[in-house]
């Protein structure tokens, strides 16, 4: 599934690097711990978190994570958005909680499940 389809299906708001919406999503990963994401996220994943620290961009970039979805309607600092644009990471926001968002993404990415 293209990131664009996921953004539309879940009414996410893309804040940075909109060219990235054409990319293919390989899967998703949910965590608020950078070490965990460093160890377990995969190339082409999208990352679900409520962490808005600047370091999330560096971690995403290092791991080939194409997009970060900030949950809970959390505001994203300007420096994070700027860095994400530079690093070509699509940062998105939603008012949904992490659990809810993960559940819905799981259904979208695994339509044959159940």
């Amino acid at each position: 599934m293209k990131l664009k389809e996921l953004v539309e299906a879940l009414s996410l708001e893309a804040k940075t690097y909109k060219d990235g919406l054409q990319k293919e999503v390989t899967g998703a990963y949910a965590s608020d711990l950078l070490s965990d994401v460093m160890a377990n996220a995969k190339d082409g994943n999208i990352w679900i978190t409520l962490q808005t620290h600047l370091n999330i961009v560096a971690v995403a970039s290092l791991k080939g994570v194409i997009g970060i979805i900030i949950v809970g309607g959390r505001k994203i600092p300007e420096d994070v958005l700027k860095k994400a644009e530079e690093e070509k990471i699509t940062v998105m926001t939603t008012s949904l909680h992490a659990f809810e968002l993960a559940g819905r993404i799981y259904q979208l990415l695994n339509p044959n499940y159940s």
Partner: peptide, 18 residues
């Protein structure tokens, strides 16, 4: 399981966020 997959399976089972 990781957090994402665990959430996915429980969501599928009908569990929701507050």
């Amino acid at each position: 399981l990781c957090m994402y997959t665990a959430a996915g399976i429980l969501y599928e089972a009908g569990v929701r966020s507050l």
